[in-house]
Amino acid sequence: MSEHARRRLVYGAMALGLTAGIVTAASPAGAAEPSAAPHAGVHVAAVGGDYLGTGVRIRAAANGSSAVKGLGYAGQGATVYCWQNGPSTKPNETVSWFYHRNSATGVTGWSSWVFFRPSGDVPHC
């Protein structure tokens, strides 16, 4: 098992313990729930998740240099659709990014696994 896969497994197990008591807020009135991953025609099952801090960047792409669409805060919750690897904000570093929708604000985008955890298994995009 690669170091990256091992870390994902450990952090996933930790996330289950940390988020077991968190109830995801209902979608704001009139907010449409995304029905697919960011790639056309790819439908995935969604799981809950949450941010690990304050002001976690929600980016337009799975890339540490892409535009920031919004910010996430611990306790807001999110619906997580899929993950993929992409460049970090650090040079020559790759991290896993989660495509999700912030439950409190409705902003949809990507956050790094460094600052965001799903509460269950998330499929690859």
Score class of each variant (00 low, 15 high):
19 T>C: 06
20 A>Q: 10
3 E>H: 09
29 A>T: 12
62 A>C: 07
16 L>K: 14
118 P>G: 00
34 P>C: 11
32 A>H: 08
80 V>H: 00
63 N>H: 14
48 G>H: 02
123 P>W: 06
5 A>G: 09
100 H>P: 06
121 D>N: 10
107 V>M: 05
55 G>P: 00
110 W>C: 04
97 W>L: 02
122 V>R: 00
1 M>V: 10
37 A>H: 05
44 V>I: 12
114 V>C: 03
76 Q>K: 02
22 I>E: 13
111 S>G: 06
60 A>K: 12
124 H>S: 12
103 S>A: 15
81 Y>D: 01
120 G>T: 05
49 G>P: 05
92 N>R: 09
22 I>N: 08
66 S>R: 05
115 F>S: 09
33 E>M: 14
79 T>V: 12
56 V>F: 01
124 H>D: 10
74 A>G: 09
65 S>V: 09
54 T>H: 09
12 G>I: 01
113 W>D: 12
3 E>A: 14
26 A>R: 13
90 K>Y: 12
87 P>H: 10
55 G>A: 07
56 V>A: 03
82 C>N: 02
17 G>A: 13
123 P>M: 07
38 P>Y: 11
90 K>R: 12
25 A>F: 06
68 V>P: 08
91 P>W: 06
106 G>D: 01
34 P>A: 10
86 G>Q: 01
25 A>Y: 04
82 C>E: 01
73 Y>E: 08
15 A>E: 00
32 A>M: 09
19 T>N: 14
61 A>Q: 13
107 V>A: 08
8 R>P: 02
103 S>W: 02
86 G>S: 06
86 G>P: 00
36 A>T: 14
7 R>W: 11
